[in-house]
């Protein structure tokens, strides 16, 4: 008798547990407002990435086309993957001394793992993370970027 009552108890308990699950999915079926998907290419205009989003490494330039990179090479040294190459020139400055200036700050986006060490360790805060994330290109060589803009030069700041 006990086993018979267990048989029916199992059956009805099972059905009620299934119904509990169906209530959850049924609830979401009738509430389309619960949809969480973002319509990506359509929402481009309103899509704001977080301010700290690590999309790519950029070198911020101001309106006079000046940047802060001295070409010291610390970012190149700290990069674990070798995605940064720095080419410097030696040119005489106003006082006639030879001074190191940055020629090309080459950044291989294809090798970057976005660990953030270059941005963190840069002594002059010349690097930053950009918010752009649409990096798909047809040619891999396009992922190798020169971060300092042509014609740009080092921002001369008043010594603190």
């Amino acid at each position: 008798m006990n086993s018979i009552s267990k048989y029916f108890k199992d059956m009805f308990g099972g059905i009620s547990s299934l119904w509990a699950g169906m209530r959850v999915t049924g609830k979401y079926f009738v509430s389309p407002r619960a949809i969480v998907t973002q319509q990506y290419p359509e929402n481009r205009a309103t899509l704001k990435m977080e301010e700290r989003f690590k999309g790519e490494i950029i070198m911020p330039h101001d309106e006079n086309n000046l940047h802060a990179c001295t070409g010291c090479g610390i970012c190149e040294m700290n990069c674990p993957n070798g995605s940064i190459e720095i080419i410097t020139n030696r040119v005489p400055n106003a006082e006639g001394k030879m001074e190191r200036i940055i020629d090309k700050h080459i950044y291989h986006l294809s090798m970057c793992t976005f660990c953030g060490l270059c941005v963190k360790t840069c002594p002059s805060d010349a690097l930053a993370f950009g918010q752009k994330f649409e990096h798909a290109v047809f040619d891999r060589s396009k992922l190798t970027k020169v971060l300092n803009q042509p014609g740009s030069s080092l921002r001369k700041e008043a010594k603190k």
Binding site: T25, Y28, F29, I35, T37, Q39
Partner: peptide
């Protein structure tokens, strides 16, 4: 479509 709405998605659109 039905499974998408159940799963809080939009489905084919």
């Amino acid at each position: 479509k039905v499974c998408a709405i159940i799963q809080n998605r939009v489905g084919p659109n």
